[in-house]
């Protein structure tokens, strides 16, 4: 598996103000390796540096230091490299007075396409995103999902090797999200590499192969979902619990969470056997409704990682604050 995008110590620093002389690190020594044919999810809270990284890959902004290689080439501004990248920005606008196919024709001309070639590419990309039926309609009449699919189509016009998608499913209804997810999975199956920046963690978990979580411009963790989502536990769904039983469970570090007035979810701590937990329930006359194994979700991993990073940062800042 070859590397299609690689960043080495990529750093971006802005000046906080003209006179203050202070610097803001949007990205600090970012090292990324994105392999061919994978869906790579690039995650982080707002302002963590995701869009900054993407913009540097597209030469929309320039690195303060470090380097980017795309398809083994350092001249990422060259037409040859740009031809291999399709980009869908978050919340992009497409002129309301144009038809779907006219928007694609405009973008196709930017690749130097014309005549029959252009028409064929427009037809093919419309087909990929299942928008052939609406090609003659004005963008004005498009739903948000349809606009997003036209956005994806413009990114696919040159049949690129790499797709960079910023929040591709944000704001879409569940049906449109599912359709978009299917399209992205198909593109990956065709051998394309997808870099997705998103806040829709459930969607990302369903389709991505590898994940990186960044916070304040620094890499926190990265790896495959199997590598990262290792925390597993068992939950027991039970009828309502008496205060005495609850006290006993707390002594054993079993966390009881009320689902409804009549139902509770018991989280068995790692290290305690399921048999022991069931035994405790029997002793306390807790009526067990179901027992389920559970894997940590990407959302939980994200919250935990960002929370840890935030606490670590506050810890670092504490002595300085105290000194002041």
């Amino acid at each position: 598996m070859s590397v299609v995008i690689e960043t080495k110590d990529l750093t971006k620093t802005y000046e906080a103000g003209f006179f203050s002389g202070q610097e803001v690190h949007a990205l600090k020594n970012m090292n990324l390796q994105i392999n061919t044919g994978e869906i790579f999810a690039y995650l982080g809270p707002n302002g963590s540096g995701k869009t900054t990284t993407i913009k540097m890959m597209l030469s929309l902004i320039f690195p303060t230091s470090g380097s980017i290689e795309i398809l083994g080439r350092k001249d990422i501004r060259s037409s040859e490299v740009k031809r291999q990248i399709g980009y869908l920005p978050e919340g992009a606008y497409y002129p309301e007075f144009l038809k779907g196919e006219e928007v694609l024709r405009f973008y196709g001309q930017l690749y130097g396409l014309s005549g029959e070639d252009l028409e064929q590419r427009v037809a093919k990309t419309l087909d990929i995103v299942s928008m052939t039926y609406a090609r003659n309609r004005l963008i004005r009449g498009y739903s948000k999902g349809m606009r997003q699919r036209i956005g994806l189509a413009q990114a696919l016009l040159s049949d690129p090797t790499i797709l960079i998608l910023d929040e591709p499913t944000t704001g879409l209804d569940p049906l449109a999200r599912k359709e978009m997810r299917d399209i992205l999975a198909n593109l990956r199956d065709e051998g394309k590499t997808l870099l997705i920046s998103s806040h829709e963690l459930q969607e990302v978990e369903l389709i991505s192969d590898r994940v990186a979580i960044i916070y304040r411009g620094e890499m926190q963790i990265s790896g495959t979902l199997t590598e990262l989502l290792t925390d597993r536990d068992v939950t027991i769904e039970a009828d309502s619990i008496t205060p005495a039983a609850q006290a006993k469970l707390e002594q054993l570090n079993i966390k009881a969470e009320d689902i409804t007035k009549e139902r509770s979810l018991l989280h068995i701590p790692s290290g305690m056997s399921l048999y022991d937990a069931v035994e405790v329930c029997k002793q306390e006359n807790i009526n067990i409704l179901s027992v389920a194994p559970r894997r940590e979700t990407l959302e939980e991993l994200f919250v935990r990682t960002v929370g840890d990073a935030s606490r670590a940062e506050s810890g670092k800042a504490q002595p300085a604050t105290a000194a002041n």
């Binding site: 913009k55 929309l60 990248i85 980009y87 920005p89 606008y93 973008y107 930017l110 130097g112």
Partner: peptide
Amino acid sequence: ENKVIYTVLSKPV
């Protein structure tokens, strides 16, 4: 503002 510039300049332009 409407980000059209990003889609245009990410092409070989």
